[in-house]
Design a protein around this nucleic acid. Structure first.
Lengths: 180, 180
DNA sequence: TGATACCTACCTATCGATAGGTAATTAACA
DNA sequence: TGTTAATTACCTATCGATAGGTAGGTATCA
């Protein structure tokens, strides 16, 4: 049985991804779980606490799904395919953006703790990707920061246009450039 | 002398880029211009009207700055450099995201007219870029949708991390790939 | 005189947050 | 073992602040 705390995190993650940090209220969450907003405050006293927890769980989940970036029996191509698949899956569930694209785009107006969590998301993801590419040697025309940028942007385009084609296009390009 | 209407659009554009559509109120705008919120409603009766006008002006301004995508005496490289420079300049003023990245990432929860305006922004920008690349022939490893995705994503990363490096990186990659 | 561009004053709805209370469970101890 | 204390997970009710929006008045000008 899933704890109420986790149910709140689930609703909040979906809500923030669809409508931004300001677009989801304690009352919205309470209504979705058939409880009162005061009870949501019991689990997360301030909105900043909730935002931080949502982003941290989101980050941990992604990195879990990505697995080790330096497993000996994986090629760069396979690793990048896992990365792309994670973003594709994230888009597929609810046709919504990456949580940290939504929040990161308005970073300066977020509560400090949420800002830091978003920052940490990108830092950790960048480190993972750099490690995943490391063995490719100097021949690689692939760059971690470009890959992350392209994926994040493609997700936004897909959401804004209501069409997964943009994400598909980037996935295709990366598959092609990452080897055979 | 700049009209009050345009002053409102200026404030709104900056505000939406920094804090999203829900992050800027009629009262915020009024306070910035030393007037009353009711007077802002005089110029833009509903928030949807304001959002639509802001996005449409933003789109027109960008396409004006980009110039013709098929001028005979421009190379693909020069055209892409103009595109990249437009995004760099947009980031530089206030270290904030592209308006349509901020709005597009939460598109499904925007008022319909604003949604449509954002959609039109991406459609027009994509058409411009496709035309700009058209003469490059089949040899090109450049793709309009990938370029726009990378620029949008890089802008978000730069804002989220407070560091223009990500935008710089994409700019560098594109300059390299678009020929000598 | 009649637009234009404001204003005052207000409305309803909602926001994040808090105070104070309650039933049910769990821990500590005589 | 039975009693007490504390904790968990909610509740009702309310706070001050703020949201978008409106009705009606006023000053300025052609």
């Amino acid at each position: 049985m899933i704890s109420k705390r986790d149910q709140i995190l689930d609703i909040a993650e979906r809500g923030y991804r669809q409508g931004g940090f300001a677009g989801l209220s304690f009352r919205d969450i309470a209504a979705a779980l058939d409880m009162k907003s005061a009870s949501v405050h019991y689990h997360f006293p301030h909105k900043e606490d909730l935002g931080k927890a949502v982003v941290e769980r989101y980050t941990d989940n992604l990195l879990d799904n990505l697995g080790a970036p330096d497993a000996a029996d994986d090629s760069v191509k396979i690793r990048l395919a896992r990365l792309v698949e994670a973003y594709r899956a994230a888009y597929a569930e609810g046709e919504s953006s990456c949580l940290c694209a939504v929040l990161g785009s308005v970073s300066p107006q977020l509560p400090p703790a949420v800002q830091e969590a978003v920052n940490s998301y990108f830092t950790r993801l960048m480190t993972w990707t750099e490690t995943a590419l490391a063995e490719d040697g100097p021949s690689a025309n692939l760059n971690a920061s470009h890959i992350i940028s392209a994926l994040q942007g493609a997700m936004i385009l897909s959401v804004a246009m209501g069409d997964a084609r943009y994400l598909d296009q980037v996935a295709e390009d990366l598959a092609e450039k990452s080897g055979i």
